[in-house]
Design a protein around this nucleic acid. Structure first.
Ligand code: MN
Ligand code: MN
Ligand code: ZN
Ligand code: ZN
Lengths: 142, 142
DNA sequence: GTTTAGATTGAGACTAAATCTCAAGTAGGA
DNA sequence: TCCTACTTGAGATTTAGTCTCAATCTAAAC
């Protein structure tokens, strides 16, 4: 599998943009995290590492990463967006425990197929989707 | 079918709260709108009608309406929450056109069943879910 | 190597959604 | 009537995210 950095650089090339040192720092930080991450988390981790990058650049670069297809936004019921790697991960959706906050990933081919046929019936061209199921996880239900 | 106001009042009773004139104004305004609505829309409509209610009370009351089960929050990919009636409407999910903003509702029993079985397999107790499919509607796809 | 146009950045101002604070007012049961 | 808990509005606050703009960098063209 291609490395993230190559994909990102190729994407940037197509937009006449370049892989600056700030963008590389952010890319590395994002791919050093497993699981769901937040913009501010990237900003603070880099700051702690004395690899300062401005908050604006973090947001700007996360946008580029999303557009390049390496990363996607996920909505987990909180008041800010989370991000997760798509590169190297198969598509999945989320069960979110509203008590302990745990996020459980699942994927179901049959659901995906049915969603695709809903779109087909409506003449809708799907680009992406997110499914969130909120409730209590095994450990939290009474 | 029971009227919204009765359900709301009963809910409030169980919480030792009362149906004040502000809460009634907001309830009426919310149920006068068909489709997806925003908190600020309620605030501004009431203001225009000279039925002033503070923004804080609008948010507080929308929270109560959600807890009472009359209304639910929906995430449509924008930077603020939308609300929609649940009372008197069957459950559905959304296709969101990222070009013209159109929101198309759909419901699919088979998808819902499969989601339920995903939860069952994981010992997850579902309370609610939302599905959003983003893409181009019939009129917007190239 | 210079020039130059366009890309890039950081600091901090700004916006907007949503929540919080708190003093003043209200409702209802004892 | 008294008391307590509920309720509200105004505006402050919080927080996520965007925008502005001057300074700097990049890389292609000369
Ligand atoms: Mn995930
Ligand atoms: Mn709807
Ligand atoms: Zn849990
Ligand atoms: Zn459209």
């Amino acid at each position: 599998m291609k490395k993230e950095i190559e994909i990102f650089e190729r994407y940037l090339k197509t937009k006449n943009l370049s892989l600056t040192k700030e963008r590389k720092l952010i890319l590395d930080e994002v791919f050093s995290i497993d699981g769901h991450l937040e913009a501010d988390e990237i900003f603070l981790r880099l700051k702690k590492d004395k690899k300062d990058v401005s908050r604006a650049t973090v947001y700007r670069t996360l946008g580029l990463l999303v557009n390049s297809g390496l990363v996607r936004k996920v909505y987990l019921g909180e008041d800010h967006i989370h991000y997760e790697h798509t590169h190297g991960h198969t598509h999945h959706d989320h069960l979110v425990c509203i008590k302990c906050g745990k996020v459980i990933e699942f994927s179901d081919k049959k659901i995906e197929k049915l969603q695709a046929s809903v779109c087909r019936e409506r003449g809708f061209q799907e680009l992406s989707h997110t499914v969130q199921i909120f409730g209590y996880c095994k450990d939290c239900k009474e």
